[in-house]
Design a protein around this nucleic acid. Sequence first.
DNA 1: CAACTTTCTCCACTCACAGGACAAAGAAGG
DNA 2: CCTTCTTTGTCCTGTGAGTGGAGAAAGTTG
Lengths: 396, 396
Amino acid sequence: MRRMTARPANAHQARLLRLLRDGGPNSRAQLGDRVDLSRSKLAVEVDRLLETGLVVADGLAASRGGRRSHNIRLAPQLRFLGVDIGATSIDVAVTNAELEILGHINQPMDVRDGPVAVFEQVLSMAAKLKASGLAEGFDGAGIGVPGPVRFPEGVPVAPPIMPGWDGFPVREALSQDLGCPVMVDNDVNLMAMGEQHAGVARSVGDFLCVKIGTGIGCGIVVGGEVHRGTTGSAGDIGHILAVPDGRPCACGNRGCLEAHFSGAALARDAKDAAQQGLSAELASRLETNGTLTAVDVAAAAAAGDATALDLIREGGNRTGQVIAGLVSFFNPGLVVIGGGVTGLGHTLLAAIRTQVYRQSLPLATNNLPIVLGELGPTAGVIGAARLISDHLFSPA
Amino acid sequence: MRRMTARPANAHQARLLRLLRDGGPNSRAQLGDRVDLSRSKLAVEVDRLLETGLVVADGLAASRGGRRSHNIRLAPQLRFLGVDIGATSIDVAVTNAELEILGHINQPMDVRDGPVAVFEQVLSMAAKLKASGLAEGFDGAGIGVPGPVRFPEGVPVAPPIMPGWDGFPVREALSQDLGCPVMVDNDVNLMAMGEQHAGVARSVGDFLCVKIGTGIGCGIVVGGEVHRGTTGSAGDIGHILAVPDGRPCACGNRGCLEAHFSGAALARDAKDAAQQGLSAELASRLETNGTLTAVDVAAAAAAGDATALDLIREGGNRTGQVIAGLVSFFNPGLVVIGGGVTGLGHTLLAAIRTQVYRQSLPLATNNLPIVLGELGPTAGVIGAARLISDHLFSPA
DNA sequence: CAACTTTCTCCACTCACAGGACAAAGAAGG
DNA sequence: CCTTCTTTGTCCTGTGAGTGGAGAAAGTTG
């Protein structure tokens, strides 16, 4: 079938498309209340959008005491693909134009296998979603990668944990393979956009979104827009100094936050503790699985294991210290904690909160919520869909 | 005489006023090149501006191979007042509409005397500038205060070093006293705006401006706009943890950056060193003046005093460590170092650079200039003038 | 003095948009 | 069933913003 070819012709149409995306179906009258246009002008633009096929009128809404209104909604066959490439797994999801997830697949993977192998897997996952009847094709795709991206070109730059990806034309390659427009961003930025669109950060203008997974990153939203920095590396807080003369880090320095707390560091510390006989719980898990991950630590902590709790608390303190500095600097209205390690839950959050509330300025922390992300593993793919829809729902 | 009463009627006029402010006098044709308008429309808007008196046509420019152009410039009698309130002194300056400084006064003062006493002094300084014939009145004033400000209302909030100023209606009071529109901001933000307008940060979209004076603060510019944060305390980096379990700070915590390096901390450390007999140079200065300030340390360092140099280097290292974290987080295109302590010059800058280049990500530091501010003590007042002119040169 | 440039003005035409009149469609009440 | 009121959507005209071309004004160059 024919995919979305048209783009909004002007800012009004773009505005209307975003309103329909974020607010669901609406009558012309309801749209008129939210947009600063006369009824006549609005009708013209809606008609033009109907002509392009980007929106459709389906059926009449219930009467609100007068003539029944026509429901205007985004074309129901529109499909966006959201791809979230992590260090060790891939998430792929299909959404409709309202960015609701219609299907979602997660598969293990190793980014270090390089872009070619990873893309093959992404394409097969996308094909599987298509085959299940959720989409006949994609009108656009957003993709997040775990490293800095030159945003305008959609190309990763100098990604530390992604050897082989440096300079790979992700946007162009994926766009060719999928046959639709593609936008690329850092995975952390997409998580922030996801939480902004459908999660805890709705209606917050300035916020930070800290993602603790294999590494640590931070999405920065200023005035509703993601801040990517001069070279696309903004938010790369994993290598901020957390412990003077601390542990050696892969980056060559010592005491980086990531060397002291992250999925990888936690797994290593848990293994050490198990081998030193500090925790029977962890030791038995190590013996069973042959290795330990953050999930094991979470489980041990949930079971009340003191060592596991200590590790989490210690890591939360480190992370909280760094976040405290960022809060003083940036003065956000909200801090969201997300990523794989959020399984550590309340213990982690409490440690982070303690540090931030203790160390940052009262003025900056007085009304500052520090909360877990609401969307879990879907934040990234929703953010990815949002990224491409923002692009497509803007004037051509 | 009658002051500026008119405001630009639309975005085009505002754009033109800012072009004339930043680019100096221009012909209609030159303006047409910089603004996306047809010659006819441009002529209409320029004519309207001429009618309001905001701009004037004075004389003909030299020919560029054809008919000579009329020079269009901002009304020459327009005057802005820039006020920069520091912890220990006040700077007041008059500028023309192009934000060129026509007169500048600096006087010692203590913010802790409270807003009433300080305003009295500001008004007498403004009167002195008027009396010298530089201005017959002011069309607008910008004022910077050394603490967080609720920007929309122009009111300081919970300023640690300014007891008595909390909630004082600075904007309203000064506006009444001066009889012109007033805008209030944090002094550090104004310094950033000053360097952006006329200093080293011209044409840089994202940059940080670290001001080291009595305290330490940081102006944050994102996409050309100052980021003030949710409660107006963004950039308050003086209380970021620099030394775990370090020196007690006035804020109640330990190890804050400001407790280890700032004008106040440097003076204290220098005094300690002098009294412990570590430096003859500093000791003799202490005896002569009865006290020591950052200026003494700068002079001693310039004279080759090893203790003074050590103090500066140590402070620069601490500051550099904190800035390194901010650079990783924010990924700016430029870092400007300014404030009273810049008299410490190259030694300080070298220490900061070393830490940042060593600790931040290569991607973030590869093309990152770290430089001293270009405007010195005038950055604040220029920024203040810029603040109010941005306000006045925007659609009413 | 002729030919060419640059600057500025004038005018007619287009298009975006507002807002009123009105038609369509339903609810509420007698 | 009919009248009245409300809500929704359409049509039409007037206004003002903006474009682009023609041409006048005022230079330079050879």
